[in-house]
Design a protein around this nucleic acid. Structure first.
Lengths: 240, 240
DNA sequence: TAGTGGTCTAGACCACATA
DNA sequence: ATGTGGTCTAGACCACTAT
């Protein structure tokens, strides 16, 4: 099962390190072996290890701390587009919104969902509808789909057992770890259904964020579509 | 005027190379000296030069081509948010929209504009209003502000002398080179004025992109605010 | 064939964190 | 005091581009 000898050593080393994290042999929060140790065990120079680690730090999989060591980074989703919703509390601090699951059921995947999650047509999915609030004010209306075969345990949980964040639950209950995601931002005039949930006027501009989240093996694990009032959204980017 | 000795050599080297580009001593499209030559002239090891160049490649200022050399990159604005407007032609290819300048005048800077461009209150600015079209269909309505003292030559140009792209004109006529920018995306229900320009219904969601563009010396050179129909906009991002 | 950037090595010394 | 990552060197060899 192995990597192309024509690839540079630092690339192959990088790939092996990714595999160790994916296999949960190196776990988030833990320190990996020192550069010296890695150099010795993989029989390469320290400089080569450094270059491989450089890559993974740039990719966000590892974090370095001078004098302490190199650590597997927790996927934090700090760069998610959700960050650009100005959902501050009245004191202006950033908080995790409260979550209310409005509905959860197991259904046959609509064909668009099956295609997106890369599962067979007609396979079962968990469909969920969720409202996120700050200080009791609705901020985001979400629809979430999970492939049933990987998340069967999730369908059995009492709703009261599910906290404000889903990914830790996926990890603890279903052994499914989210490693990365792609997000897509579009804008629409909000429909009457979501308008009622969000307590805004139908036709008001809303930002729609679709997120497809992947495991370390690059398999799609979760699809969600979230809607929030566009008036609360501001995105900034650097251009070169 | 010199750099801190406590900074690593590769950082100081990086800064000196940026300065050479800013001073137009190294010009876009040109090759810079070889790594060997740089190492000799700055009296550092080649590896140190490589690290400095690595940084500038990552920042997008330089481009490397194995066997050919390292070149100063033209600021291409490939990553601009405008890229996410699906302004395709009927054949689906990407094109530079046609530009029509609707108005251009020299005025005293409104205080918000003066603050943004970091010029004194009441200083003169060139204010411009522009429409961008594809196949004759209006796609973006833009308002643009330029500090008059740097762009005086621009105010004299016949409108027919100004092409579809402004930055090459800034460079050729005013010797002002845009090096980077920050962009901000918000959404609003379009007002009657812009609705008429864009030939859409007032109240339709519109994407508003504000861009503040800087020279190599980090001075703000241009501020523009562009509005386009949100229905044509889709933004995608990778999350880790 | 000559010259460029790309990979890799082996080792020295520095700065920082922790005990 | 020890061990970690951070910086820097000097040189070898490879892969690609141009002539």
């Amino acid at each position: 099962m192995h990597a192309d000898d024509r690839l540079p050593r630092y690339q192959r080393l990088r790939d092996e390190m990714v595999a160790l994290v994916a296999a949960r042999h190196w776990r988030p929060g833990e320190a990996i072996p020192t550069e010296q140790a890695l150099a010795k065990s993989y029989d390469v120079a320290v400089g080569t290890v450094r270059k491989a680690v450089d890559l993974l730090v740039a990719e966000g999989l590892l974090e370095r701390f001078q004098g302490r060591g190199t650590f597997v980074r927790r996927a934090s989703f700090d760069s998610s587009l959700f960050r650009f919703f100005r959902f501050q509390t009245r004191q202006g601090e950033r908080r995790i919104p409260e979550s209310r699951i409005l509905r959860r059921e197991v259904v046959e995947a609509p064909s668009a969902v099956a295609a997106t999650l890369q599962i067979p047509n007609g396979a079962k999915v968990i469909q969920m509808s969720r409202l996120r609030l700050i200080d009791g004010v609705p901020m985001l209306a979400e629809e979430i789909w999970l492939p049933f075969d990987r998340f069967a345990a999730f369908a059995q949980l009492e709703l009261t057992e599910i906290g404000d964040l889903l990914y830790p639950v996926y990890e603890a209950q279903c052994n499914q770890v989210i490693a990365s995601a792609t997000e897509t931002l579009t804008v629409e005039a909000i429909g009457p259904l979501h308008a009622r949930l969000l307590r805004i006027e139908p036709g008001t501009p809303a930002v729609v964020i679709e997120r497809l989240a992947y495991g370390y093996d690059r398999q799609p694990l979760e699809w969600r579509r979230s809607r929030g009032p566009a008036s609360e959204f501001i995105y900034q980017a650097e251009i070169r």
